[in-house]
Simulated assay, not measured.
Amino acid sequence: MRLFTQVASVYLLAAIARPAAAQAPAQDPGAYNNAIVAEQVDLLKKNLRYISKAAHSENDRKIENRRLEVVEQNKLALSRLQHLAAFKGNDEFRLAAIRAFKTTLDVYSADFKQVNTLASTRSDSYEAMQRFFDAQEAANKKLAVVSDSVDAAQQRFAKAQGFSLSTSRESAKLSAYAKAVDEVNHYQHEVFLPYFRLQKFTARLSDALNAQDAAAFEAARVAVGAEADKTAAELAALPGFRGKDMAYRNAARDYANMYVVLCANQFVQMAELMKNKDHLTKADVQTINGHIATFNQQRQKYNDAYNRTASAFMDTYVPVMND
Rank of each mutant, 00 (worst) to 15 (best):
A119E: 12
D151K: 08
D91L: 04
F157W: 03
H279N: 14
R49L: 12
M321E: 06
V115P: 04
F93P: 10
S166E: 14
M246G: 04
H186E: 13
V261H: 06
Q73G: 13
L280F: 09
M314T: 15
S147E: 04
A215Q: 13
F241Y: 15
N34L: 07
T287C: 01
E39C: 11
A214D: 11
V261S: 08
R299Y: 11
T309C: 11
Y259M: 03
P19G: 09
Q73L: 01
L84M: 15
F295M: 14
K159N: 07
G240K: 01
L235M: 08
V285M: 14
T294M: 13
Y177R: 10
A35R: 12
S164E: 05
A180L: 07
K53P: 00
N59A: 08
L273I: 04
F4S: 11
A214C: 08
Q40I: 09
V285G: 09
F112E: 08
A24E: 15
H189Y: 07
D278V: 02
Q82V: 05
V70I: 03
N257M: 10
T167F: 02
D151A: 10
L76H: 11
A100T: 01
R242S: 09
A21V: 00
E39P: 02
R61M: 07
R61H: 06
V261L: 06
A138D: 14
Q40E: 13
R2W: 06
A178V: 01
E190M: 11
G240Y: 03
K62E: 10
A214M: 07
F133D: 14
A264E: 08
G162M: 02
V184A: 14
R99D: 13
T121A: 12
N185M: 09
N74F: 00
K230Q: 11
V10I: 05
N140E: 07
S52K: 00
N33C: 14
H279E: 10
D111M: 00
V222M: 06
V318L: 03
V260I: 02
V10Q: 09
G240H: 05
Q114F: 02
A160I: 00
S79P: 02
P319R: 01
T167D: 07
A158K: 01
R169P: 05
